[in-house]
């Protein structure tokens, strides 16, 4: 090998980091080449300087402080509370107060639910205006007897749907003698509306003239 090649290998040669055959080649070259030999000596010296100067000396006090800091951090990590505890701590709340508040909210929700169940339904559909849709072939007969063509769900099976919930007698009993409105429908229909005592219930009777 020539000098430029050897010079490239010298940094590794001084640390014995070359394969055996290359180590031998460099060694043979250095025995004959003064210039490369001096360069190798320079590498060896700088490596020795690097190794000797890089021995740090830390005071025992520094090391003891470092260990103490580690122990302190470990202790802090062990003392970290759970998520709920942290929330309580951050809000300065005691768990018993929070539990009491939760119980009150729950009780309120239950009472509200019970009240809703006792409440009568808002709307009563009159039997008189039962909106039975009787599907008859391709036509639907509404309560007035009109036949309207079916537009959707043609292939569905025949069925009878009833929405009436109250009997006629019930409705009459509830009905107050309120003004009776009679409207003349433009399409030869008579429309009779009865307002019951319940403002939410109005009886509408559609009939042919």
């Amino acid at each position: 090998m020539k000098c430029p090649q050897i010079e490239k290998l010298l940094p590794l040669y001084v640390g014995d980091d070359l394969p055996a055959d290359q180590m031998e080649s460099v060694r043979t070259h250095l025995a004959d080449c003064t210039q490369c030999f001096e360069m190798a000596a320079g590498f060896s010296e700088s490596r020795s300087w690097f190794r000797e100067a890089a021995i740090p000396s830390f005071d025992e006090a520094d090391l003891a402080n470092m260990r103490a800091s580690v122990h302190q951090r470990i202790a802090e990590e062990h003392e970290i509370p759970g998520l709920l505890d942290r929330i309580f701590a951050s809000l300065s709340l005691r768990p018993v107060f929070v539990a009491a508040a939760a119980a009150i909210i729950l009780l309120g929700a239950v009472l509200y639910g019970l009240r809703s169940v006792d409440k009568p339904p808002n709307q009563v559909k009159p039997d008189i205006a039962r909106e039975a849709e009787i599907r008859d072939g391709n036509e639907v007969i509404d309560p007035t007897g009109r036949k309207t063509p079916q537009t959707a769900g043609r292939d569905k099976p025949r069925r009878i749907r009833r929405k009436a919930v109250k009997t006629r007698s019930d409705l009459i009993a509830r009905t107050d003698p309120l003004p009776l409105e009679t409207k003349q429908e433009p399409s030869e229909q008579l429309r009779i509306e009865l307002q019951t005592s319940d403002p939410n219930i109005r009886i509408i009777w559609l009939a042919r003239k």
């Binding site: 590794l12 700088s46 690097f50």
Partner: peptide, 12 residues
């Protein structure tokens, strides 16, 4: 390593 040793030698 080779590069580092060369730089340290040059620095020294």
């Amino acid at each position: 390593i080779s590069s580092a040793r060369s730089k340290i030698r040059a620095f020294r």
